[in-house]
Design a protein around this nucleic acid. Structure first.
Lengths: 303, 303
DNA sequence: GTGAAAGCGCTAACAC
DNA sequence: GTGTTAGCGCTTTCAC
């Protein structure tokens, strides 16, 4: 009997009405993904990871870019609420916005957090060790013989910026390099900000032999700015990035960087979210492996 | 009275249940976006355009990457059906898959098509003139004095590959260049395929002075392969791409290319889809403007 | 095993 | 204006 009904349903091209199902189950089977990162490859990796985990599940993915969540947490929350989501995957920096998490708790929307730094017991978490990754990058440059450094910082609303800076400082301290001598310029993870920061670095004061940019977009900007300034990379100046974004492989020289496990973090975080939604016990915060990628943009300083 | 109810609703943080609303209106207020393009910047532009148009509307965007729609149109359709969409925006090459359009018609799912080449009266359409854009690129190189060409083709399941090739051929014909002498290599729009194609071009036969790659990813690959081969770009060989993707601005030299109005096409197509859904009369197929971007990867051939 | 009925949260149509 | 009611398509429960 079941079989016959199914057969006829198939024939009539019947599909159950999701709204009616949702009305009873009090579920929308909709999962959101919020991000504000400008970098396309980061965004796409995030989506790929989430979709990978969602493949074969009933849940569908809604993309919710939101420009400046730190400045307008309420705006984000109301976006999330009106979207009628069962759960949401929060990418940095929203993953560390406590007002957002509070509102989500109140609205009974489950959440997973990518690369959070605060309150790791809230929601499903997947992250990497930014500090250790940054340290290994700085140690690599120190190992090559560099002593004059410049640092281009990322968006200060991302805790990752702080963690990465800590990592650099640890490496500097171990090598006896005075952080007071390190040229530090503020950026915000965009290409334009990296370009501006590098131009400031090159326009005044003693020129560093190595630049640590907190992401690849800014590192590539620094690379282009150095070249426009007539410098050879890595001959005159070494430049390292962070992310292993697509562009880091497409520049010349190819960028030394750290591979962030963005895809994996998104996949694991989404899996954790599903566990919460299905009321299964979910795992402790996952820390996923990064990878130091030494390519051609870093070399020993010229004597 | 209305005011008082609204005030209390606000206070109680009331949000209407989307499922219940959808049950009556027979709408899910969900719009899908399908694509299979590997290039992150293309995908993100597509999403940005669609989201831009959807901002302030009730509709939400579901992303539906589907790897090989040409080989499995039924798979795509069943994905679309189970997602309970009101409508879908089809990016190439799905926008030209007639079996998919037929199935969508049958399932009563509205659709908009980005850069279609077939049956332009079906669905809402937004496109650009690939052929004219390709022709202007080839004319630019011919104008610089090039006569020995190589072409790296894109994915043959995309009609755009064909249109762009037609544009090149028109320019060649006008300049009296025998197409039989043009080296043509097959690619599929990926970086890896561009790399392979360029290595084949450089490994045998007479070396061309200019290479026309059908997208930027392949052009960048060609650039890198040329450099690995010890060639100076544009001194020894000129290379042009297609797309104005992010990477085209980040390479050295920066790529000569054509800006595809991807964002605008997505925005306009999504607008057309909304018109169909709201049963408003919708506009004729829109052809949006492209732009020739002459940068540093093309120069006159060496004497 | 099969069938009938209630109700999920909302909207639209109607009566007052 | 204000209140009542039917019903959207499904699942779950309970009766047979």
């Amino acid at each position: 009997m079941r079989e016959r009904v199914k057969a006829v349903a198939q024939e009539l091209n019947y599909h159950p009405n999701v709204n009616a199902q949702g009305l009873i189950s009090r579920r929308s089977y909709l999962i959101g993904l919020t991000y504000e990162r400008p970098s396309p490859s980061y965004v796409v990796e995030l989506q790929r990871g989430a979709l990978q985990r969602l493949a074969g599940e009933r849940y569908r993915l809604i993309v919710l870019p939101f420009p400046n969540a730190a400045a307008d947490p309420d705006g984000l929350v109301s976006l999330l609420r009106t979207a009628a989501l069962d759960g949401v995957v929060l990418a940095p920096p929203s993953s560390d916005l406590l007002p957002v998490l509070d509102a989500l708790d109140r609205a009974d929307i489950a959440y997973a957090r990518i690369a959070p730094h605060l309150d790791l017991d809230r929601g499903a978490c997947a992250s990497m060790d930014d500090q250790a990754a940054a340290r290994s990058l700085a140690e690599h440059l120190i190992g090559l013989g560099h002593r004059q450094f410049a640092v281009i910082l990322g968006d200060p609303t991302h805790y990752a910026s702080e963690s990465r800076l800590k990592g650099y400082r640890e490496a500097f301290a171990s090598a006896g390099i005075d952080f007071g001598q390190v040229r530090v310029e503020q950026g915000d993870f965009t290409y334009a900000s990296g370009d501006g920061a590098m131009r400031r670095i090159l326009s005044g004061g003693r020129r560093p032999t190595a630049v640590l940019a907190q992401n690849d977009d800014m590192a590539v900007a620094a690379l282009m700015a150095a070249r426009d300034h007539g410098l050879d990379v890595p001959g005159d100046i070494s430049i390292a990035g962070f992310d292993d974004s697509d562009v880091s492989r497409l520049t010349w020289p190819r960028l030394t960087t750290v591979r962030q496990p963005v895809f994996e973090m998104a996949e694991v975080a989404t899996g954790g979210l599903l566990s919460i939604l299905e009321r299964e016990p979910h795992a402790a915060p996952a820390v996923l492996a990064h990878e130091l990628l030494i390519r051609q943009s870093t070399a020993p300083p010229r004597k």
